[in-house]
Amino acid sequence: MSSAAGSALAHAESDLDREIATLGALDLAALRSRWRQGLRSAPPPQLSRALLLRLLAYRLQAKALGDLDRDTARLLDRLARERLRRRAAEARGKRSKAAPPIPPAPSPGLKPGTLLAREHAGQMHTVTVLADGFAWQDRTYTSLSEVARAITGTRWNGPRFFGLRDKPAMSSGGGR
């Protein structure tokens, strides 16, 4: 990415942060007004201020940074339909059968073929993202946390170990 493109992206994210902060300062009536302006429809009347704020912030982010990919949207729709089906079955007094297993997504934003690298104990470790998990040292793992545990011998949050999440604030007791 060129420095001009990086600068433009940083500026767009800064504008987005400001817009979301502005939303956070609005009361319920003003959020409903923003909904009508931005989405050209009346907001659902039962939505609380907190949920309305989250939905508007999501729409701003999706518009600026791109919405969910088709596969993720389908997965979420399938999960929602299954939940509604289970609730309806429970309301009728029937026990619903177990939900079909949903294959774990490798990690948000990671596409098959992506290489993750991390140095640990003086050794460089490279993990390849697969469609159905992660490959490290000729073995396949279902989660990054399993890979991190295999590398370190201790329990780790896999995305955090590979630098895909922010590090937590250090407490007086230390930690990872």
Rank of each mutant, 00 (worst) to 15 (best):
M1L: 07
S2Q: 01
S2E: 01
A5Y: 00
G6H: 10
G6F: 11
A8L: 11
A8W: 07
A8K: 13
L9H: 04
L9M: 11
H11V: 04
A12D: 15
E13G: 11
S14V: 12
L16H: 07
D17I: 06
A21I: 00
G24Y: 05
G24L: 05
L28I: 14
L28E: 15
A30I: 09
L31F: 07
L31I: 09
L31C: 13
R34K: 04
R34A: 14
R36L: 08
L39R: 14
R40M: 15
A42K: 08
P43N: 09
P45W: 02
Q46M: 15
L47R: 15
R49I: 15
A50K: 15
A50C: 15
L51V: 14
L52R: 10
L52P: 15
L52E: 15
L53M: 14
L53V: 14
L55E: 06
L56H: 06
A57R: 13
L60H: 01
Q61M: 07
Q61C: 05
K63C: 07
D67G: 05
L68Q: 03
D69E: 02
D69W: 00
D71C: 05
T72K: 07
A73M: 05
L75Y: 01
R78L: 13
L79T: 12
A80L: 11
R81L: 14
R81V: 10
R81T: 14
R85E: 15
R87W: 04
A88C: 08
A88N: 11
A88M: 12
A89R: 11
E90F: 04
R92C: 01
R92W: 02
R92K: 10
R92M: 03
G93C: 05
G93F: 00
S96E: 13
K97N: 12
A98R: 07
A98W: 01
P101R: 05
P104M: 03
P104C: 01
S107D: 03
P108Q: 02
K111W: 06
P112H: 10
P112V: 11
T114F: 06
T114E: 06
T114I: 06
L115R: 10
L115Y: 04
A117T: 09
A117P: 03
R118Q: 08
E119D: 11
H120R: 00
A121N: 09
G122V: 09
G122S: 11
M124C: 13
M124N: 04
H125T: 12
H125W: 06
T126P: 00
T126F: 00
V129G: 03
G133I: 03
F134P: 10
A135E: 10
W136I: 07
Q137K: 05
D138Q: 08
D138E: 07
R139V: 13
Y141M: 11
T142L: 12
S143W: 04
S145M: 14
S145Q: 10
E146R: 14
V147S: 10
A148R: 02
A148C: 08
A148L: 06
R149W: 02
A150I: 02
I151N: 00
I151Y: 01
I151E: 01
T152E: 12
R155C: 05
N157V: 13
G158I: 12
P159V: 13
R160C: 09
G163D: 09
G163C: 14
R165G: 03
D166Q: 06
K167W: 02
K167E: 06
P168C: 08
P168T: 03
S171V: 03
S171K: 08
G173K: 03
G173T: 01
G173S: 11
G174C: 00
G174K: 00
